[in-house]
Design a protein around this nucleic acid. Structure first.
Lengths: 196, 196, 196, 196
DNA sequence: CATGAATGAGAGTTCATTCAT
DNA sequence: GATGAATGAACTCTCATTCAT
């Protein structure tokens, strides 16, 4: 079927409803029937737009890939303290870690583990790179403002990677219920202390 | 069914053969038929011992949970350099990260993401605690020997947690092909540098 | 729906485009969607004229049923040699047998085999009779001109039937790839030899 | 599933029941569900042996391919009259043509028309060759016995082909209800008359 | 205990057909 | 009349699970 304007809206609708299903059931456990039900449409209707849960899921991730970095950019533009910016970012990440049952993250991990082949690899790699980049810049901004002095301009990228990897680790451990809220607080504090 | 000695041996046999299947296909994609095939036994025969892939997988993880910490304990008993012990541990972890397709780790993550309920939670939590403990002790041992001086006895547990979380982060990123070998090297180096 | 002049033209358009689809895919494999695509019209639009592939196909066959016998009639009017006329006809049939993938014949056979009920029976029976008739007359014409002498006026219809049945046999064997070009040549030659 | 002796018997059972379905409904119209019903087994049970109607049908044709030529061979061994043998053969073919609704022939044609690719091509080609061969030999036997004198030893193969092609033509015309019983009689008579 | 054929629930997929716009 | 999104019945296919032997 040719995708018309109305078709685009329908896809948006499906993606939205399906996302809720993936949040609740993860990736593998979701069937086309589940999504049909969630959308309140017919089987055939769904298949006109997407022909597998994988396709729908990829679209969800693809649409979400444009992470909003305004938090960082606006912070720097308004000459906010770099440590405050980073602390704010960590706080935000922490909150997400604490309510993982209401985000699609579990499903995303499941998706990547389930599909050995390089599904969506480019999208997530780009996302990873962009996050490293914005954190690096924020660190450099903090060094320039003498707020961060335990690392040099040279180290910014390494440290940015370190932060993201740690957040990923916290994520997966939170999902497998292996860590407590306190541990998250503690580890994020360490990240900040290593800067100042 | 009464579990006889023979029955225990049979379970060991099944677990061993099934593990190879999980390594290859992950968790969700494995069917009872796959395991029947790998074991060369009958369906009914398999069901006499295990009634789902989940049960088999839990047994695999349960049997593997007794991680071998002799690497650390022997190192300390033989008065080896603490940095060498930790570097050796990281090296070993790195090698595992680089050949994730030959370990059961992908399946383990998949398993935990797939089952929302607290399957095996206790076993992995205990494993987590034990690993934190042995690394902590190694760090304390290094501090006592003046090999590690950037952290104090107070910090050992925090740093141990930090290391494990980072390794988890590297693991999940490696599984979703988001990081390179160089990045792994770099990040493990940072961990050591933060000590000395 | 009242059939307007415009409607008739539209049906002609649909029949033409649909025929190409049937040539390519046979009868059973063709869906309404295929025809919609080939026509570049809407589903609803197609259904306004035809409500099944069967109906469309019947119309195609019905419109084609008026075989052009001018080849025979003109030949006789121009006092051409009867053997030449028949040889020309066989040649033409042979060429069709050799490029069955570009004719609708496969679909026609499929159609008749698929529909047990007497769909289009009258149309094809009439076509059969007409072909027998024109060949009979050509044979009689040849006998009258002493070009054909192995058969009598009495036999013309039998022989005409024989020819058509043989052509049908060649057709179905060609469609199931059981005969070669040489075999076709050989058998058509026999038909002629049996006359002179 | 490994095919055991019991499995072979089951396949025979399925093939037998399925054949009846194909006789009644042709090829294309038959679904796996139809066969499941006819066999009185479960879906999964059927799929353990065959994974498509095509596969089942091929097996049916394959098992039937060993046509029984004893009619010809025994006839010649017992020094029966060649014309009687051939007439008997034609009679037998005629009877089959008159009760096409009780044979699988319609389905076979449909199968070959539906599958453009060379399914079973070898089997039917071999069958064709064998039939040509036995008829040729019977013709030669008749010539040797001076029962057949309108053709020479050289012509036997051509004539055998001619007979088979004509039978195919009669078959397809009978299936599409284009010919009568009388016409069949007439045409088979011609075949005999062309010999003596 | 072991076997493996058989079951059937449930997931995936296609398409003729309808109907609001 | 024309459009094409939506429907849902009908098929295909897979697997966990059972049970007679």
């Amino acid at each position: 079927m040719a995708i018309t304007k109305k078709g685009i809206e329908k896809k948006e609708y499906i993606v939205e409803k399906a996302a809720a299903v993936f949040v609740q059931k993860g990736f593998t456990a979701v069937t086309m029937e589940d999504i049909v039900e969630a959308c309140g449409i017919s089987r055939g209707g769904l298949y006109a737009y997407y022909s597998s849960t994988k396709e729908i899921f990829e679209d969800i991730v693809f649409r979400e890939k444009n992470v909003d970095y305004s938090f960082f950019t606006e912070g720097m533009e308004n000459e906010k303290n770099s440590i405050q910016i980073l602390t704010g970012f960590f706080e935000q990440q922490k909150n997400e870690l604490l309510r993982l049952d209401t985000t699609i993250r579990r499903a995303v991990y499941e998706f990547f583990l389930f599909h050995k082949e390089a599904a969506l690899e480019d999208a997530v790699k780009q996302n990873y790179r962009e996050t490293v980049s914005i954190i690096s810049r924020t660190l450099a901004y903090g060094i320039a403002r003498n707020e961060i002095y335990k690392i040099t301009f040279e180290d910014t990228e390494k440290v940015a990677n370190h932060m993201i990897i740690l957040l990923e680790g916290l994520s997966i451990l939170a999902l497998s219920k292996q860590i407590s809220r306190d541990l998250i607080d503690e580890q994020l504090e360490i990240m900040i202390k290593n800067l100042i």
